[in-house]
Design a protein around this nucleic acid. Structure first.
Lengths: 148, 148
DNA sequence: GGACAATTGGATAATCTTGTCCTGTTTAGG
DNA sequence: CCTAAACAGGACAAGATTATCCAATTGTCC
């Protein structure tokens, strides 16, 4: 249901947040997030145009988040690469009724609204801070877990 | 975020529910729901294979719902044509941790779960029964609204 | 059985998404 | 100023989604 592009964008920003404020190159992000790097490059370009990340060329350059992870929500990232597409007018094109959606599309939009709320409530900092067995990005932790 | 196929499938079943238990032909559904009929035909085939609708050929035939609209949920329809795709294992392919998702994918799956719940709670009968200015399917009502 | 109504399914095309490759441009640092 | 690092962007290809058309099949009714 979520596109690959959204998935990749989220992986990338989570990784950037984990390493913030140090810049990471596209190659580094691709390796860490298991995303094809040529395609990731395009996704990052989109994030850059949307102002979510900042790109710096040349030696020592790479990608950085433009905002503090504590204030960057998942929703902002998702909307940057591919807006959620809330249903605002009747998809049948019938302008017969104003902005009111029919019961079907109202329910569909409610579902989208729920996703929007869930995504708006989560910041990248929260994702990184969450105590869990699985490290933030599903990455293999740099130090292996203690075995019991 | 929802595919065209899902949109079309939902429109079709809502229309069928509205006319239930009378069968409707693909052409009739296409006209009522503003869906390209050749493509709708494919979508209905999918719904038929999934057992959501029943198809009957020949004169007087057409499509009918296999269940009473009071017991058919939006979720069943959506899953029939294109499963919601809940995230069950780490998309990075790392089986390093069991079924636990990392915080990012947990949140994404929570969003999907919210959609699932919203869709599971709504039956077609509820959609038809809902009092509203906008008729069930965004269709033009057969009788025009009284003007004030 | 014949005529007509309707779905089924195959072939095909247009468009979008995903992915790859390569060249150019910017930038830091010697 | 030269080199190497890094992003930017265009061209292109594969695959999936959306869409169209048509022949074949199944069914009803006379």
């Amino acid at each position: 249901m979520f596109s690959q592009t959204v998935e990749y964008a989220l992986r990338a920003v989570v990784h950037l947040a984990a390493e913030a404020p140090a810049p990471r190159t596209t190659d580094q992000i691709a390796a860490a997030t298991r995303v094809p790097k040529a395609y990731l490059s395009k996704v990052l370009q989109g994030l850059s145009r949307a102002g979510v990340v900042h790109s710096q060329r040349g030696i020592g350059g790479g990608m950085t988040l433009t905002k503090d992870p504590a204030y960057l929500t998942i929703l902002e990232v998702v909307n940057a690469v591919e807006p959620l597409g809330r249903i605002r007018v009747c998809p049948l094109g019938l302008a017969a009724h104003g902005v009111r959606l029919c019961p079907l599309h109202r329910r569909m939009d409610n579902a989208l609204a729920a996703v929007e709320v869930a995504f708006a409530q989560t910041t990248l900092a929260e994702i990184l801070a969450e105590p869990t067995d699985s490290p933030p990005l599903c990455e293999v932790p740099s130090k292996l877990k203690v075995r019991r």
